[in-house]
């Protein structure tokens, strides 16, 4: 082997690597998303992995919860398999816009988000609540002054808390729900801001801390989010959610996971 052949083979290896990479390329003249999904036979849905009772790990490490029920029903209605992809508050919008996932669950509506992504039907009630220990008196947003508060960065909780909290509030932004909840439970922050149902899961397990819901910051039902200009997919999702509402299966999931019957009035922004 001479140096030249070594270099040549290195170069060839690089070329191979490169062309293998090109194999992954997505064509930009995209067919309709719904055609892609049917063709692949798989619906990729971005969900949180640490977001009980909407989506969290079970003993065999599969994800379970309200969001997973709904995602499964959507896949069934499109007659494809469901593949859940676990995302964080921070990376999920890029995941969607870069077509790593077809849909996102648990996305609250905001104007900023609407510039980048599209919203299909709302499917779950979501109340963003301030949660803290019983011993700490918090009645409204002014009481947040000087308190340390854990929140998941880049989520609607983050933006609504940032807008509401006085300047002296010490907002600690974490990367995922796991860290938010752990920071609160371990006493690293005095308060946390999460959905009230997520909070309820935590509350029921922490006798020592005796946490309770202090007040609600925002009511913002969870939507299914998708990329812009995917009108056929959006229609299909909206139809599927409407059907789940009509046949009572959404209500069943609500009773199973959120422990309360579903009130369709709570699905309005």
């Amino acid at each position: 082997m001479t140096l030249k052949t070594t270099l040549k083979s290195t170069f060839a290896a690089l070329l191979l690597l490169g062309s293998a990479g090109i194999g992954f390329m997505t064509s930009d003249a995209r067919a309709d998303a719904i055609d892609d999904i049917t063709k692949a036979g798989v619906l990729n849905v971005g969900v949180f992995a640490d977001f009980p009772p909407f989506s969290s790990a079970s003993a065999d490490m599969t994800l379970k919860g309200y969001d997973i029920d709904v995602a499964q029903a959507l896949a069934d209605s499109l007659k494809v398999k469901l593949k859940t992809v676990s995302v964080t508050g921070q990376n999920r919008i890029p995941y969607l816009t870069e077509h790593r996932v077809d849909l996102l669950m648990s996305v609250g509506y905001s104007k900023e988000r609407e510039q980048v992504i599209d919203f299909a039907a709302a499917y779950a009630p979501y109340y963003i609540a301030v949660i803290g220990p019983k011993a700490l008196e918090i009645k409204n947003k002014d009481d947040l002054a000087g308190k340390s508060i854990a929140v998941n960065r880049g989520t609607l909780e983050d933006t609504s808390l940032t807008a509401a909290a006085p300047a002296s509030a010490d907002v600690k932004r974490f990367d995922n729900y796991n860290s938010v909840i752990q920071a609160f439970i371990s006493g690293q922050t005095q308060l946390m801001v999460v959905g009230n149902d997520v909070g309820a899961q935590v509350l029921s397990r922490q006798e020592a801390l005796a946490p309770e819901q202090k007040f609600q910051l925002l009511t913002s039902p969870s939507h299914i989010a998708l990329n812009k200009k995917e009108d056929r997919l959006k229609q299909a999702i909206n139809d599927a959610v409407a059907k789940m509402l009509a046949d009572g299966s959404l209500n069943k999931s609500s009773e199973a996971w959120l422990k309360t019957p579903l009130n369709p009035a709570n699905l309005k922004d």
Partner: peptide, 11 residues
Amino acid sequence: ADMLQARTFRA
């Protein structure tokens, strides 16, 4: 960087 990225969507 994470905060900026979440605001600008320019990861």
